[in-house]
Design a binder for these strands. Structure first.
Length: 231
DNA sequence: GTTGAGCGTT
């Protein structure tokens, strides 16, 4: 009973998958199984992990045998605090076997069972800031919109850009980045145009970027640890 | 050792 997700998809013929989000990174399938199994027949529980690190991605898939039970678990476990974190349970949609909640039972929609009032009845409007379709978020958890600057070198970089930033060391670095892709046969290699550029490159001052005497000293140590006697 | 919107594998 602990081999969930290890034997692959057992049988997705008539099962309904639920997507559990907002779970802790330490929560495992075994921890969710007894929790979801209490509300219905869980046939499988799978938690996608990172192939690089192997850590949980923060969400799991619980496969139920019946939709009514799955729906029940969604209303019961949705918003429940697990491991100190509020989890969100909902039907999977983009899954391989995206269950169609609109099966034959969907005709019941005319039924007066419109009492969708959750047991909790709590306001879940402010559950998170993803009210919008902010799905553009990169899969990588490091996709923070706040790109860390170059230690405060951003301002100077802008100033330098007007002078000769292109001639820095970014051009030659990209040259050997395409071993497979060769230049167009028609296009002549820029080998010839690299000569004049080298002249300007010499004009740049590697230590000129340091404005404050104190900052220069710190920078010096980083590049030349053996330059202690420099000061 | 951290993180936090989302949609899945042997």
């Amino acid at each position: 009973m602990s081999h969930f997700g290890r034997s692959g998809p057992p049988d997705i013929r008539d099962t309904y998958s639920l997507l559990v989000l907002n779970i802790t990174f330490r929560t495992t399938a075994d921890d969710l199984f007894p929790l979801f199994d209490k509300y219905g027949k869980v046939v499988d529980v799978f938690i996608p992990r990172d192939r690089r690190t192997g850590d949980s991605r923060g969400f799991a898939f619980v496969r139920y045998k019946y939709q009514d039970e799955a729906q029940k678990a969604v209303e019961k476990l949705d918003g429940r605090v697990v491991d100190g974190r509020e989890i969100m349970v909902q039907f999977a949609k983009y899954g391989p076997n995206a269950e169609r909640m609109y099966r034959d039972d969907y005709k019941d929609r005319d039924h007066h069972r419109r009492s969708r009032s959750r047991s909790r009845g709590k306001d879940r409007e402010g559950r998170r800031g993803r009210d919008r379709d902010y799905r553009h978020r990169s899969r990588s958890r490091s996709g923070s919109p706040d790109y860390h600057k170059d230690r405060g070198r951003g301002r100077y970089d802008d100033d330098r850009r007007s002078r000769s930033r292109s001639y820095g060391s970014a051009s030659p670095a990209r040259r050997s980045a395409s071993p497979r892709r060769s230049q167009s046969p028609r296009r002549t290699p820029p080998s010839r145009g690299a000569s004049p550029d080298a002249v300007k490159q010499k004009d740049r001052s590697p230590t000129s970027k340091s404005l404050s005497p104190r900052g220069r000293r710190a920078d010096s140590r980083s590049r030349s640890p053996h330059s202690d006697a420099d000061d």
